[in-house]
């Protein structure tokens, strides 16, 4: 009995020594779980129709907050330019960028329930980043979608989505770079404000 207890204690200590994040498979399972939840919401018959739209959007928004690291996403989308912004500008940028992404993709994603998703594998990119390969099977083709996740405080969060080789942050970075080549960060923020549709002054 005592032995058993000791063994259990030993195992517990061992487990504690290795935080959950090191176990391979965790990033994939994390993303898989989140996507499954998104699909469940999209397929939920009780949430069909315009009347339920708001509840549905709120639920999806909650998952996206949990799933994505919007600060990391913003930082990487700006590249070098991130450092040229003041902390206030950075903060506002994250906020605006997040609303833009949510706004743009909320409509798209809701029409999107029938396709089958397969989770292929995960590739280690660096010590703290992992890429999860997935594919969506549509009626006529297979679309490769990779999620890049970063480990922060034991949680894996998505900081980039790569669709058919096209990285989201890299694509936005090309756009931001062109804007920032001629304009100030403030002008970029103004463009984003207009785009998001809340012309709040800073």
């Amino acid at each position: 009995m005592v032995m058993k207890k000791r063994l259990a204690g030993f195992v517990l200590i061992l487990l504690l020594m290795f935080p959950l994040s090191v176990y391979s498979g965790v990033p994939l399972e994390t993303v898989k779980g989140q996507i499954t939840r998104v699909l469940d919401i999209l397929r939920d018959p009780a949430l069909r129709g315009e009347a339920q739209r708001k509840i549905k959007d709120e639920k999806l928004s909650a998952i996206s907050e949990e799933m994505f690291d919007f600060t990391e996403l913003s930082k990487r989308s700006l590249g070098q330019s991130w450092n040229k912004m003041t902390p206030e500008q950075q903060k506002e940028f994250v906020k605006l960028y997040k609303s833009l992404l949510k706004k743009v993709y909320a409509d798209k994603i809701t029409s999107y329930t029938e396709e089958k998703i397969i989770f292929k594998r995960e590739n280690t990119l660096s010590e703290k980043t992992v890429e999860i390969e997935t594919a969506i099977l549509t009626k006529t083709s297979e679309v490769d979608i990779n999620y890049r996740v970063i480990e922060k405080g034991g949680y894996w969060k998505v900081y980039d989505v790569v669709i058919e080789g096209v990285s989201l942050i890299s694509n936005y970075r090309a756009q931001f770079r062109e804007i920032l080549a001629n304009q100030t960060p403030e002008a970029l923020l103004e463009t984003l404000r207009k785009r998001v549709g809340k012309g709040q002054p800073s």
């Binding site: 994603i109 997935t134 679309v143």
Partner: peptide
């Protein structure tokens, strides 16, 4: 997956 479908094949 979010914005997956619209890039199906840009080329």
């Amino acid at each position: 997956m979010l914005f997956a479908l619209f890039l199906l094949n840009p080329s």
